[in-house]
């Protein structure tokens, strides 16, 4: 993960970008918890909202992979197809972990 290049894409400094990335991880984990609660209850709205929130924030920072997974989850929730969402939630969690690890290495 080239944080420096990602920061430059946004026209901000690297330190600012790292602050945003850390915020993304915390916020998205919280969204993910809400999403999983929605899955347990079988209610599509909180799932779609949480996925939408992650998609927007990750996309804005340039984490395209995470944004793409979240986008799929949002679409699936809209169709009421809950089963495939579980697997994607795990993939998303791994993506967030990867950001955390990359930040730790710095």
């Amino acid at each position: 993960m080239d944080f420096k290049a990602m920061a430059s894409n946004l026209g901000i400094g690297e330190a600012d970008f790292l602050e945003l990335a850390a915020l993304l991880v915390v916020t998205s984990l919280s969204d993910l918890a809400a999403l999983e609660k929605g899955l347990a209850q079988g209610s599509p709205d909180p799932i779609a909202h949480a996925a939408h929130s992650i998609k927007g924030a990750a996309g804005n920072l340039g984490f395209a992979d995470i944004a793409a997974i979240a986008s799929e989850m949002e679409t699936l929730a809209g169709k009421g197809e809950f089963d495939p969402i579980n697997a994607r939630a795990n993939a998303l969690r791994q993506g967030l972990d990867a950001i955390n690890m990359a930040m730790d290495r710095r």
Binding site: L10, I12, L20, L23, N60, L61
Partner: peptide
């Protein structure tokens, strides 16, 4: 925006200008 990441990002971009 309800997502703090987006809010902070907008604040950073616009404050710089």
């Amino acid at each position: 925006d309800d997502n703090p990441v987006n809010l902070t990002l907008m604040k950073m971009i616009l404050s710089k200008e």
